[in-house]
Protein backbone atom coordinates (compact mmCIF):
# COMPACT_ATOMS: atom_id res chain seq x y z
CA UNK A 1 0.00 0.00 0.00
CA UNK A 2 1.31 3.39 -0.98
CA UNK A 3 0.43 6.76 0.45
CA UNK A 4 -0.44 9.81 -1.65
CA UNK A 5 3.11 11.05 -1.93
CA UNK A 6 4.58 7.71 -2.95
CA UNK A 7 1.81 7.04 -5.42
CA UNK A 8 2.29 10.41 -7.12
CA UNK A 9 6.03 9.96 -7.18
CA UNK A 10 5.59 6.54 -8.72
CA UNK A 11 3.20 7.93 -11.33
CA UNK A 12 5.74 10.48 -12.50
CA UNK A 13 8.80 8.22 -12.38
CA UNK A 14 7.42 4.91 -13.62
CA UNK A 15 5.17 6.26 -16.35
CA UNK A 16 7.08 7.44 -19.40
CA UNK A 17 6.43 10.99 -20.51
CA UNK A 18 4.72 12.09 -17.29
CA UNK A 19 4.68 15.88 -16.91
CA UNK A 20 2.82 16.11 -13.63
CA UNK A 21 0.26 14.36 -11.48
CA UNK A 22 -2.25 15.25 -8.79
CA UNK A 23 -4.60 13.51 -6.42
CA UNK A 24 -7.77 15.55 -6.30
CA UNK A 25 -10.87 15.57 -4.12
CA UNK A 26 -13.69 16.36 -6.53
CA UNK A 27 -16.18 17.16 -3.82
CA UNK A 28 -14.13 20.28 -3.10
CA UNK A 29 -11.92 20.69 -6.17
CA UNK A 30 -8.81 20.81 -4.01
CA UNK A 31 -5.70 18.72 -4.55
CA UNK A 32 -4.62 16.33 -1.79
CA UNK A 33 -1.21 16.20 -3.37
CA UNK A 34 0.62 17.27 -6.51
CA UNK A 35 3.91 16.47 -8.15
CA UNK A 36 5.65 17.99 -11.15
CA UNK A 37 3.91 20.62 -13.19
CA UNK A 38 5.46 24.07 -13.21
CA UNK A 39 4.68 27.35 -14.86
CA UNK A 40 3.40 25.66 -18.00
CA UNK A 41 1.13 23.36 -16.02
CA UNK A 42 -0.37 24.78 -12.84
CA UNK A 43 -1.67 21.68 -11.07
CA UNK A 44 -3.89 23.68 -8.72
CA UNK A 45 -5.71 25.09 -11.71
CA UNK A 46 -5.80 21.63 -13.29
CA UNK A 47 -7.28 20.14 -10.10
CA UNK A 48 -10.06 22.71 -9.94
CA UNK A 49 -10.78 22.63 -13.67
CA UNK A 50 -10.81 18.86 -14.01
CA UNK A 51 -13.11 18.62 -11.01
CA UNK A 52 -15.67 20.33 -13.25
CA UNK A 53 -14.93 17.81 -15.99
CA UNK A 54 -15.52 14.85 -13.67
CA UNK A 55 -18.64 16.37 -12.14
CA UNK A 56 -20.09 17.12 -15.58
CA UNK A 57 -19.54 13.53 -16.70
CA UNK A 58 -21.04 12.10 -13.53
CA UNK A 59 -24.09 14.34 -13.97
CA UNK A 60 -24.42 13.44 -17.64
CA UNK A 61 -24.43 9.75 -16.83
CA UNK A 62 -27.11 10.29 -14.20
CA UNK A 63 -29.22 12.14 -16.76
CA UNK A 64 -28.70 9.38 -19.29
CA UNK A 65 -29.79 6.86 -16.70
CA UNK A 66 -26.51 4.97 -16.94
CA UNK A 67 -25.89 3.02 -13.77
CA UNK A 68 -22.20 2.69 -14.46
CA UNK A 69 -19.07 3.96 -12.88
CA UNK A 70 -16.42 6.02 -14.62
CA UNK A 71 -13.14 4.18 -14.76
CA UNK A 72 -11.08 6.84 -16.48
CA UNK A 73 -11.33 9.86 -18.75
CA UNK A 74 -8.85 10.59 -21.54
CA UNK A 75 -8.32 14.03 -23.00
CA UNK A 76 -6.10 14.22 -26.07
CA UNK A 77 -4.39 17.49 -26.89
CA UNK A 78 -2.00 18.37 -29.70
CA UNK A 79 1.09 17.57 -27.66
CA UNK A 80 -0.25 16.05 -24.44
CA UNK A 81 -2.51 13.41 -23.02
CA UNK A 82 -4.43 14.14 -19.85
CA UNK A 83 -5.60 11.08 -17.99
CA UNK A 84 -8.14 11.17 -15.17
CA UNK A 85 -8.64 8.04 -13.14
CA UNK A 86 -11.38 7.85 -10.51
CA UNK A 87 -10.52 6.04 -7.30
CA UNK A 88 -12.65 3.07 -6.37
CA UNK A 89 -11.21 1.56 -3.23
CA UNK A 90 -13.10 1.88 0.05
CA UNK A 91 -12.61 5.16 1.79
CA UNK A 92 -11.30 6.94 -1.27
CA UNK A 93 -14.58 7.77 -2.94
CA UNK A 94 -14.76 11.20 -4.47
CA UNK A 95 -11.10 11.28 -5.45
CA UNK A 96 -9.36 11.13 -8.80
CA UNK A 97 -5.81 10.82 -10.03
CA UNK A 98 -4.85 13.29 -12.70
CA UNK A 99 -1.89 12.66 -14.95
CA UNK A 100 -0.50 14.86 -17.71
CA UNK A 101 1.67 13.14 -20.30
CA UNK A 102 3.90 14.26 -23.13
CA UNK A 103 2.31 12.77 -26.23
CA UNK A 104 5.65 12.22 -27.96
CA UNK A 105 7.20 10.21 -25.14
CA UNK A 106 4.16 8.49 -23.65
CA UNK A 107 2.75 5.08 -24.41
CA UNK A 108 -0.93 5.52 -23.73
CA UNK A 109 -1.81 1.85 -23.22
CA UNK A 110 1.11 1.41 -20.88
CA UNK A 111 0.32 4.61 -19.02
CA UNK A 112 -3.28 3.53 -18.42
CA UNK A 113 -2.16 0.14 -17.24
CA UNK A 114 0.42 1.61 -14.86
CA UNK A 115 -1.99 4.20 -13.52
CA UNK A 116 -4.53 1.44 -12.80
CA UNK A 117 -1.88 -0.39 -10.82
CA UNK A 118 -0.88 2.72 -8.90
CA UNK A 119 -4.52 3.40 -8.09
CA UNK A 120 -5.03 -0.13 -6.81
CA UNK A 121 -2.08 0.24 -4.45
CA UNK A 122 -2.95 3.70 -3.27
CA UNK A 123 -4.23 3.99 0.27
CA UNK A 124 -5.33 7.51 1.17
Amino acid sequence: MANTETALKEATTVIDGALGAALVDYSSGMALGTIGGGKDLDLTVAAAGNTDVVRAKVRTMEMLGLKEEIEDILITLGTQYHLIRLLKSRGSNGLFLYLALDKQRANLAMARHQLRKIEAELDV
Binding site: G29, M30, T44, A48, D52
Partner: peptide, 9 residues
Protein backbone atom coordinates in the same frame (compact mmCIF):
# COMPACT_ATOMS: atom_id res chain seq x y z
CA UNK B 1 -21.60 21.62 -3.82
CA UNK B 2 -19.26 24.34 -5.06
CA UNK B 3 -15.83 23.52 -6.39
CA UNK B 4 -13.80 25.22 -3.66
CA UNK B 5 -10.61 24.98 -5.67
CA UNK B 6 -12.20 26.97 -8.44
CA UNK B 7 -13.84 29.36 -6.01
CA UNK B 8 -10.37 30.21 -4.67
CA UNK B 9 -8.87 30.65 -8.13
Amino acid sequence: RINVGRLHL
